[in-house]
Simulated assay, not measured.
Amino acid sequence: MATTKRNTLITPTLPEDITKDELSLVRSYLLLTFIHKVFERDCRVIGKSGLFKTPQLYMELVSSATKKTSLMLQEVTRELTSHQLKINTIRQDQRGVTAEYTCRGYSGDIHILWPGFRNEMMLRMRAYLGLGAELASVLPREERVEQMALSF
C-alpha cells in the first residue's frame, strides 16, 4: 500500500493594509509637523520684528502652543512606532502634501490637498493657542486661506 505524504504549503502572512486609525496617525503626524514649524517661525518673527510693544507676551503664547505641538508630536511618533509605521518621505507641491510610509511591510502614500490641510491646521492651531473656533469667522474665508499659504 502506497502512502502519500501531504505537503503543506506555508506562506508568510501578508501584511495587513494600513487601517483608518493608522492613516489618521500619519495625517496627525503631518499636521503636527507643519504646525510646529509654523509656530516656531512665528515666534522668531515676533521676537525680531520690532513691531510689538510687548513681544514677550505674544512669544509666550506661541511658545506655549509650540510646546503643546511638540508633546503631541512625540506621542504620535510613539504611536507610529507601536504600529510599525514609518514615514519615509514628505513632499509638498502646489496641490498639497504627500507622505510615503511603510506599515508592517506594506508601502503606501497619503495625499492631502492644501485646502483641507490648511483648514485642519487652522482649527488645530486655534486649539493649541487656546482660541475658540467661534472666532474663526472674524476674517473673510479668502483672507484665512491666504494667511496659511506659507511655504513650509
Rank of each mutant, 00 (worst) to 15 (best):
E16M: 05
T19L: 03
L135D: 15
L25S: 03
K67M: 09
T98Q: 14
D21G: 14
I10G: 10
M121K: 11
C103W: 04
Y128E: 06
S63L: 03
L71C: 07
C103P: 03
R118T: 13
L30H: 01
E142A: 13
Q147Y: 11
L123T: 06
L30D: 01
M72E: 12
Y106K: 05
L9H: 13
P15R: 02
A149L: 10
Y29K: 06
M72V: 07
Q84K: 15
L113Y: 09
R41G: 09
S82Y: 05
T3E: 13
A99M: 04
A149V: 04
L71D: 15
V76K: 02
G116V: 03
R124I: 07
L73S: 07
E22Y: 09
R78E: 14
L80H: 04
V45T: 12
R141Y: 11
S64L: 10
I110R: 14
E40G: 14
G116L: 04
S70A: 11
P115W: 10
A2G: 04
L71E: 13
E134D: 15
T33C: 01
S64Q: 08
I18A: 12
N88I: 12
L139W: 12
L139H: 05
F117N: 08
R95I: 11
K20Y: 06
L9E: 11
K86M: 12
M121H: 01
G108V: 08
E16F: 07
S82M: 09
M148Y: 01
I87W: 02
T3Y: 08
E146Y: 00
S107D: 09
T8M: 06
F52E: 13
T77P: 04
V26K: 01
L14P: 07
L123A: 02
T11H: 09
D17S: 15
I18P: 03
I18E: 04
R95V: 06
V38I: 14
Q74H: 10
H36K: 10
H36S: 12
R104L: 10
F52L: 09
P115F: 08
K48D: 08
T81K: 12
R124W: 03
K86N: 14
P140G: 05
F52N: 04
L123D: 00
S64I: 01
G116N: 04
I46F: 07
E134L: 11
T54R: 15
T69W: 00
V62L: 08
L9T: 15
F34Y: 14
L85W: 01
D42R: 05
I18W: 01
G50A: 13
V76L: 04
V62Y: 02
S24N: 14
T89P: 00
R91P: 00
E100H: 08
E60H: 10
A65S: 10
T102N: 05
A2S: 13
L23M: 13
D109W: 06
A99F: 02
A149W: 05
C103N: 15
I87G: 00
Q92P: 01
E79M: 10
L85E: 01
K53A: 15
T54H: 15
R6Y: 08
E120P: 00
R27N: 06
T3A: 14
A127T: 10
L32Y: 13
T77H: 07
L25Q: 00
R126H: 13
H83Y: 15
R118E: 09
E75S: 03
R104H: 15
L71G: 08
Q94D: 15
V138F: 07
R144S: 12
I87Q: 03
E60M: 14
M59W: 00
M72D: 11
K5D: 11
